[in-house]
Amino acid sequence: MTYHFDFAALLPYWREFARGIWLTVQLSAVSTVLGFVLGTLCAIGRADGSRGVKWLVAIYVEAIRNTPLLVQVFIIYFGIATLGVHVSANMAAVIALVVNVGAYTCEIVRAGIESVHKSQIEAADCLGLSRFQTYWHVVLRPAIERVYPAITSQYVLLMLASSITSQISAEELTAVANRIQSDTFRAFETYIVTGVLYLLLSFVVRVCLWLFGLAVFVRRRKLGTAI
């Protein structure tokens, strides 16, 4: 083997890498927040909606969970374009990621909602809480607290999955890496560096979500026990 590794060849490109990381962070952050809202709403719809809503949510969840993200990205990016609406690659990437992670979040949160005991909801009814209050104070908080670890890993996976949007040339980290490797012909080094950057990113995401959990779930922080 006569190959000489040359990681220094990548140094001039640090700005590009930084820009790629920044877009990956933005993509993941936006789709995490929107995906969580969408997923939670769907979970409520599935648990408590009318028959039609339940069906719609079920179809949405099954359709998304049983097809690859890559194909979803293609359908959204090219499909929307054929409808005559032009969206940028970044926009299409966000839409695809939100739609995708919303379905997974729905399943996770639904499991959490189902684990809330019926007597809790009856108690809330007795106290005269409105339906919104019941969901907000009695159902969702403990439900989400309980499934928070699963949600955390789902959003780490989401950050990693955002690499797939490089296939429609959203200029995030993987797309940047693809360009740099074709500039430098240092493919192996480029992807090793990119892999390490993703590792660091997934660590950062994990820590952020953990801190967020500490800040939000006061009960757990004070008592230190699982709900």
């Binding site: 083997m1 190959y3 990693l160 999955a161 690499s163 797939i164 490089s166 993987t174 890496a177 493919a187 192996f188 992807y191 090793i192 990119t194 892999g195 993703y198 590792l199 997934s202 660590f203």
Partner: peptide, 24 residues
């Protein structure tokens, strides 16, 4: 496990693809 779960499959595929050709 941490390495595999902390990097996207896409990057894993690229590293292996180009790594294989480096090995000759």
């Amino acid at each position: 496990i941490q390495l595999v779960q902390g990097t996207p499959l896409l990057i894993l595929l690229f590293v292996i693809y180009f790594g294989i050709s480096l090995l000759g």
